[in-house]
Amino acid sequence: MAIGDKISNAAEEAGGKAKEAAGRATGDERLEAEGQGDQASAKVKKVGEDIKDVFR
């Protein structure tokens, strides 16, 4: 996995955690769900990159 991809995925996951926390703190269910979605997306990307690395 390229270092840029790792940084990007980590940033997306961190942003998702922040959104989720902000949504929870303010009672905004949509923002909380969006944060959870961002985290899941980052994790899926990481798994995809890990699989690519196995076949290199």
Rank of each mutant, 00 (worst) to 15 (best):
M1L: 12
A40F: 03
I7Y: 07
D53I: 09
Q39E: 12
G35M: 09
I7L: 11
A10Q: 14
G27K: 00
A21E: 04
A25E: 00
G35F: 03
N9T: 08
G48C: 05
V44D: 07
E12C: 06
I51K: 04
I3F: 11
K19E: 05
E12M: 11
K46V: 03
G37P: 05
K43D: 06
G37F: 01
A22Y: 00
E49P: 14
D28T: 02
A14Q: 05
E29Y: 03
G35W: 00
E12V: 12
K46E: 14
S41G: 03
E12I: 10
A14V: 09
E12Y: 10
T26A: 09
K17C: 00
A10E: 08
D38N: 03
M1R: 10
A10V: 12
D53N: 09
A42Q: 02
R56V: 09
A33N: 09
V54C: 10
K45W: 06
A2Y: 09
R56M: 15
E29C: 05
G37M: 04
G27A: 02
T26N: 01
A11H: 09
M1C: 12
A22W: 01
R24I: 07
A2K: 14
L31H: 02
D38P: 05
S41L: 12
E20F: 03
D50G: 11
G35A: 01
A25F: 02
K17W: 04
E32Q: 15
D28F: 01
I7E: 13
I3L: 15
I3Y: 09
R30W: 09
T26Y: 00
I7S: 08
G4K: 13
A42Y: 04
K46A: 15
D28A: 08
K19Y: 01
D38Q: 11
D38S: 10
T26K: 09
E20W: 02
A14D: 02
A33G: 06
A33T: 07
E32W: 04
L31K: 08
L31C: 05
G37D: 02
S41E: 13
G16V: 00
A25C: 00
Q36A: 09
V54E: 15
K52S: 08
D53K: 15
D5T: 12
K45S: 12
K6A: 01
A18S: 10
S8Q: 14
A42K: 01
V47H: 06
E29S: 12
E34V: 01
Q39A: 06
A21M: 07
F55Q: 10
E13V: 05
N9S: 12
L31A: 10
K19F: 01
G15V: 01
K6Q: 13
I51E: 07
G4E: 15
I7H: 07
E13N: 13
L31Y: 00
D28G: 04
D28E: 03
E12A: 14
I51Q: 05
T26H: 00
K52A: 12
N9G: 06
M1T: 06
Q36T: 04
V47Y: 07
A40Q: 10
K6L: 05
M1F: 09
S8Y: 10
E34H: 00
G23D: 05
S8H: 11
A33R: 15
G23V: 08
F55D: 13
A18R: 02
